[in-house]
């Protein structure tokens, strides 16, 4: 296995407040890693640094050896990192299919003129993208709804659509920010299988933030725990669930890791 995404001691300060300090991460190709921690621990901030939304105050991030520092988010996305959001950020007034096509479009090169004039090269690519988009939607069981506005979909399906939209950018690394938030146990269970399935099908490396312990413990091979911006533990689900520091950080007493 080879290292895909590497973060070396990244820190970020907001006006003197150290939100994340000396966070290190090494994602091997094909790994499925969880990032957990109490609210406000800095998990989403880590995602924002990895995707170029925030520039770390210190440290370095590389994707397959290329530094990601000071690169704009869309450039990092083209390098191969895609993500979803904790609070769903779909293009709500656009249709389901358009949401997916936007990602495809940002990654294929036909120009404005051929698009405007409907040249043959445009038509064939457009057709292929539509086909791919519909296939992705059917993997997530939201086929048949492609012409609905994104805002009219049920909550769980909006979460799935965010994953589809991220996958359409053809990433190497997928960052999922609380993919199961607001889902019931059955939906969460289905989502676990889906995440495993897409990891294997698309040869992805996945880093996910999640509060649902049954999901994290169920599918992650490795877990990192953040608290107040510090990495307080890392290891297999088994090691993590027995780690007293983790239990203390979460509840101040024994937490339910029974899943």
């Amino acid at each position: 296995m080879s290292t895909v995404l590497h973060a070396n001691k990244i820190s970020i300060e907001f006006g003197g407040l150290k939100a994340v300090s000396d966070f290190s991460l090494n994602l091997e190709s094909g790994e499925l890693v969880g990032l957990i921690g109490p609210n406000g621990a800095g998990k989403t901030t880590v995602f924002n640094m990895l995707t170029g939304v925030y520039l770390p105050t210190s440290g370095d991030i590389t994707l397959e050896g290329k530094s990601l520092l000071k690169k704009q988010p869309h450039v990092i996305n083209h390098y191969g990192i895609a993500r979803t959001f904790q609070n769903i950020r779909l293009f709500k007034e656009m249709t389901v299919l358009e949401n997916v096509l936007i990602s495809y479009h940002a990654h294929v090169g036909y120009n404005f003129v051929s698009g405007l004039l409907h040249l043959p090269s445009f038509k064939s690519r457009e057709k292929e993208m539509r086909k791919n988009a519909l296939e992705l939607l059917s993997i997530f069981h939201i086929e048949g709804k492609q012409d609905e506005l994104a805002k009219n979909m049920p909550y769980g399906e909006q979460r799935k659509l965010e994953i589809v939209r991220a996958l359409a950018t053809k990433p190497k690394v997928l960052l999922l920010d609380e993919p199961a938030a607001g889902m019931n146990p059955q939906e969460t269970h289905d989502l676990m299988n889906l995440i495993r399935f897409i990891r294997d099908t698309f040869k992805l490396t996945i880093l996910l933030i999640e509060h649902d312990m049954s999901l994290v413990m169920g599918i992650c091979e490795r877990i990192l725990v953040l608290d107040y911006g510090q990495t307080i533990a890392s290891g297999t689900p088994d090691q993590i669930s027995k780690n007293p520091m983790v239990i203390k950080a979460y509840l101040g007493e024994e937490a339910d890791f029974s899943a």
């Binding site: 869309h74 993500r83 950020r89 293009f91 936007i102 940002a106 990654h107 404005f112």
Partner: peptide
């Protein structure tokens, strides 16, 4: 058009659009 869709995406959510690879 592709650029028109991208325009709508940026106007809905600039940050999300840039993270989907759109050059804002």
């Amino acid at each position: 058009t592709k650029i028109g869709k991208a325009m709508r995406a940026v106007s809905h959510d600039t940050r999300a659009a840039s993270l989907m690879g759109i050059n804002v």
